[in-house]
Design a protein around this nucleic acid. Structure first.
Length: 570
DNA sequence: GCCGTTTTCGGCCCGACTGTTTTCAGTCG
């Protein structure tokens, strides 16, 4: 899929045009980029099936941008983009990644200090050159250095929501080969970690050469890093993908080994030794005799353990639990009956209420919360109280048509700096469900943020705290919170904490969600969808819940509507 | 460069926050 590549180019074009002070076009390019990256269909397929006309049906894509997409699909380049890049020889993408840095600062830094990349920027900030520029000071430098440090730490890891579809795509391609017998995604991808270094795939086959030849020559391979009979590495959609061929007799032990995590495996091997065995990727051995290896379950059994779901293999107590047969029965996608955060055209979503509803019904959900913005988020097109009423009528009309599906009218309201809610109390009271979240003042300290959220929880109007830490994976660290206080208040006031399933958020993360679960706080999952294409992210929320040891009972989306309402007191 | 249930030309929803200023530019959402 070239969707993300193309979207990234349009983002860059927008940035460069903004540096050149071109009006309006940046907005248009960004809009197109946003809708292209959230397409669930391969843009190349769309073009192949419907040509330029079909491309122009993508919101924000018109004749000009459609032609550029076609140019890229055909030639791998966009001439105008190449021209723009040459006119300002700066690593725009790299610098834009630094929080607090935008096109205006980039062009200023380039013109005044010849800053072209991250390295130059760091040097300039460290040597105090930035503070001499107009409207810059010590604090600016400090913030830049902090942001660079974060960007460096995040490194080149890909987010799960990006890597997982690619892994699945490769697996489905490989499965079509009749030479491939068993196949399994391993590593952090199958453990559903929020970011992934590379994708590991294991296969068994009688014809390694054929499989490797196919793998390294598949459409979409950008680079072959290594190629051998048992292991090959390619770069595919800018992710490194390893394919390993193993013996069927060792498939289980190889999966065990390559799934990891490293910490989990270390403990497992120690247990093997204590029982007089040796565990490696080739099998479980007693002396020279292999006693298990074909399948994973057998290995765990021989070590006196129940089989452990991949998401738990982090050495966070799962091995002890497996020993005592006390592993949680993890929540599953099939248990989820609802999606509790999504937006429509009433605020900043791309689709109508009806379109969102139909897509959710198709996905087998039983009820949903429509949660458009209200409050001060102007750019997100926050609803006025008049619009809330209009939407209410529309929802009531739709609800009257359904027997086995219910739309709850909700809203996502801002928590202001002083902790008050940025909406009319009367409006909030009329809604079926209220989500509250921090959207501004993200850099405030732990004490202040905790106070803000506590006051939302205790307001008596709020049912769910949305994306509680405000983090954006690889982009922005969330603010700190005093979790003990938040959990206590949430429990006392019957407020749920959200696992936001949007790929770049996953907020709460696995660690915080697990702590919430242990504190007996309700958790909700919401996709934060801004178009029907986003609804598929629901599974990412389930993965976080699973990594957080959550069972069905911990997630309020698993409750049938009547029990859900009772539980929340709505 | 896109878009149209007020427009095929003329708009493109802006308000809060921060860090720098002493009236505001840049960034974020």
């Amino acid at each position: 899929m070239k969707n993300q590549e193309i979207a990234n180019i349009f983002y860059s074009i927008a940035d460069i045009l903004e540096m050149k002070e071109v009006e309006w076009k940046p907005i248009a390019y960004r809009k197109a980029a946003r809708s292209i990256e959230s397409l669930s269909k391969d843009i190349e397929e769309i073009y192949k099936q419907g040509g330029q006309k079909e491309l122009e049906k993508i919101p924000g894509v018109g004749e000009g941008i459609a032609k550029k997409i076609i140019e890229y699909l055909n030639t791998g380049k966009i001439k105008e983009y190449e021209k723009l890049k040459k006119s300002i020889p700066v690593k725009v993408e790299e610098l834009m990644n630094v929080e607090g840095i935008g096109p205006k600062k980039i062009i200023l830094f380039y013109k005044k200090l010849k800053i072209k990349n991250l390295k130059d920027l760091e040097k300039a900030a460290k040597s105090g050159k930035i503070r001499k520029l107009p409207r810059m000071g010590e604090k600016t430098e400090e913030n830049i250095l902090k942001a660079i440090a974060f960007a460096k730490r995040a490194g080149k890891r890909k987010i799960l929501g990006y890597a997982l579809p690619i892994a699945n795509e490769i697996v489905s391609k490989l499965k079509k080969l009749k030479e491939v017998n068993q196949i399994q995604i391993c590593g952090s991808t199958v453990r559903k970690k929020e970011t992934i270094g590379d994708i590991d795939i294991l296969v068994t086959t009688k014809n390694p050469k054929k499989v490797m030849d196919y793998f390294t020559n598949m459409e979409g391979v950008e680079r072959i890093v290594a190629k051998g009979p048992t292991k090959s590495t390619i770069v595919y959609n800018s992710i490194e993908v390893d394919l390993r061929v193993v013996n069927p007799n060792s498939f289980g032990s190889a999966v065990q080994y390559f799934v990891g995590s490293k910490e989990h495996n270390v403990v497992l091997r120690r247990i093997a030794i204590s029982k007089g065995y040796k565990l490696s990727e080739y099998g479980l051995f007693k002396g020279n005799k292999k006693i298990a290896g074909k399948n994973e379950k057998e290995i765990y059994k021989r070590l006196g353990l129940k089989w452990i779901p991949y998401e738990l293999r982090e050495n966070r107590g799962e091995i002890e639990a497996a020993k005592k047969n006390k592993l949680p029965k993890l929540v599953e996608m099939e248990d989820i009956l609802s999606d509790l955060q999504m937006h429509t055209r009433y605020s900043d979503g791309n689709n109508t209420v009806e379109e969102m509803v139909n897509a959710c019904k198709k996905r087998g959900l039983k009820y949903i919360a429509i949660t458009d913005h209200i409050g001060q988020l102007a750019v997100a097109g926050a609803m006025t109280s008049k619009e809330v009423k209009k939407q209410r009528k529309e929802i009531e009309k739709l609800n009257s048509k359904f027997k086995n599906f219910k739309i709850l009218q909700g809203a996502e309201v801002d928590i202001k700096l002083n902790g008050s809610l940025a909406a009319d109390k009367k409006v909030l009271k009329e809604l079926d469900i209220v989500l509250a979240a921090i959207h501004s003042g993200l850099r405030r300290g732990k004490k202040e943020q905790t106070k803000r959220i506590l006051s939302a929880i205790e307001s008596g109007y709020v049912n769910i705290i949305a994306h509680p830490t405000g983090r954006l994976i690889n982009t922005r660290e969330g603010y700190e919170l005093d979790w003990e206080k938040i959990f206590e208040a949430a429990k006392k006031n019957n407020v749920a904490l959200e696992i936001n399933a949007y790929p770049t958020r996953l907020d709460l993360n696995d660690i915080h969600a697990k702590a919430a679960k242990e504190a007996d706080v309700m958790l909700s999952i919401g996709t934060d969808s801004h178009s029907v294409e986003h609804l598929r992210f629901l599974e990412l929320g389930v993965y976080v819940a699973r990594r957080a040891w959550c069972e069905k009972k911990n997630i309020i989306n698993t409750l049938p509507l009547n029990r859900f309402k009772k539980k929340l007191g709505i």
